[in-house]
Design a protein around this nucleic acid. Structure first.
Lengths: 224, 224
DNA sequence: CCTCGACGATCAGGATACGCATTCGCGGCT
DNA sequence: AGCCGCGAATGCGTATCCTGATCGTCGAGG
């Protein structure tokens, strides 16, 4: 999952970035509203963390612009505490959740996870497809109840597919959501990891759609 | 486990801090309500000891603010008199336990231990994973019934992992909960102590999740 | 029905980041 | 003073990742 952080205070920004990366996210960091807006408009994110107290362009404005452009990613808004009005305005402008500074990193992680889960239409923290189960909280994957050990990248790939179960996911989409901004897009890593996942979870878990990408299907509604 | 003490009376505060530290807790001490509130909002604590009789901001107010912000740590409230009304008000405001001054330090320790235990969802004071048992009351660790001598830091680390059995715990999370505020976060101490614990309790007690952190697994549901 | 082209799968190699063990010096405690 | 635990630094080993090459397969068109 790929996250955009728009935070003008460099210290907090970097700290957030490392924390999120340690939790398995690909993270881009933007330090001002204009650049942040551009990034959010051009790149593919699964969630955005937006500080309202930005210089130059106001965070609310950025959020409003995104929504007007039709950007749908969930936005978690950070604001100084006690500014109740900010919260209301933020939610009005299309924010999906709200966190007052200062906050605890663990809470941020938890909310982020919930946001992404909700955005993909899942209600439980457990993603299931056939015999495969992935618990986003504990980071555990099981096959027929048997625990399977996945590496970080394998996990990210599988997680993204599960979050978009039934949809055809193109290779570029996968790259965009698994890696952060600076990454060589001309490589076959995706294929490699698909192969590895198939080796661990069975060949039928991920379906190849020739010329389009991959798909992870719910066996309840299998692909023809 | 990391504790925050909010206590305006310096003597009692320092005394509590040392006592708790001798009992294996990492302790931050705050001497007024405003600072205390800030610390509780920013840092990661496993429990908070809060004196109600604070100058400036009232303890109850601080507690109320925390709960409104969504802080979930268990709070043990101290009050000067044995006034029933204070107790009721405290519990109303979201306190988890209550202790009247003056009190026996032993009782404080005992209640604190119970609070942390309950917060992590454990019903017994004994934490068990495989052949390893840790008794939070006596602070003793056994391996297959054989007592094992752990140093303070080793104990803290193991204890935290046991309290969060099955979850993947990142290095930063461990540092945040084992050490107090001022500590160099760029160090490899966690790895060192993991190594030392493995030497004493066997290599399979703590599982490494590469790139994410560590996990202590219930043998009933082992990791692959 | 066969052939060819394009796309995807697989494999093996090297690079790298990550975690581990060890060592050492410091400081507190006995 | 001597011991012990703690934390910092270092070098090593290895899992993991990426790359490039090769092999396999699907499908369109003849």
């Amino acid at each position: 999952m790929r996250i955009l952080i728009v935070e003008d205070e460099p210290t907090l920004g970097r700290q957030l970035k490392t924390t999120l990366e340690q939790n398995g996210y690909a993270v881009d960091l933007s330090v001002d509203g204009e650049d942040g807006h551009f990034m959010g408009s051009t790149e593919e994110y699964d969630a955005v963390i937006l500080d309202l107290g930005l210089p130059e362009i106001d965070g609310l404005t950025v959020l409003g612009m995104w929504r007007k452009e039709g950007r749908k990613f969930p936005v978690l808004v950070l604001t100084a505490r006690d500014s109740w009005s900010d919260k209301v305005a933020g939610l009005d402008a299309g924010a999906d959740d709200y966190l007052a500074k200062p906050f605890q990193t663990e809470e941020l992680i938890a909310r982020l996870r919930a946001l992404i889960r909700r955005a993909s239409g899942n209600s439980s923290s457990e993603l299931i497809a056939g015999d495969v189960r992935l618990d986003t909280r504990s980071g555990r994957v099981t096959l027929n109840g048997e625990p399977v050990k996945l590496t970080a990248q394998e996990y990210k790939l599988l997680s993204y597919l599960l979050h978009h179960k039934g949809k055809v996911v193109s290779r570029t989409e996968l790259i965009e959501h698994i890696y952060d901004q600076d990454f060589d897009r001309d490589s076959n890593t995706i294929e490699v990891f698909v192969t590895r996942i198939r080796k661990k979870l069975g060949p039928d878990v991920i379906t190849t759609i020739r010329g389009l990408g991959y798909s992870l299907d719910d066996p309840a509604q299998p692909r023809g």
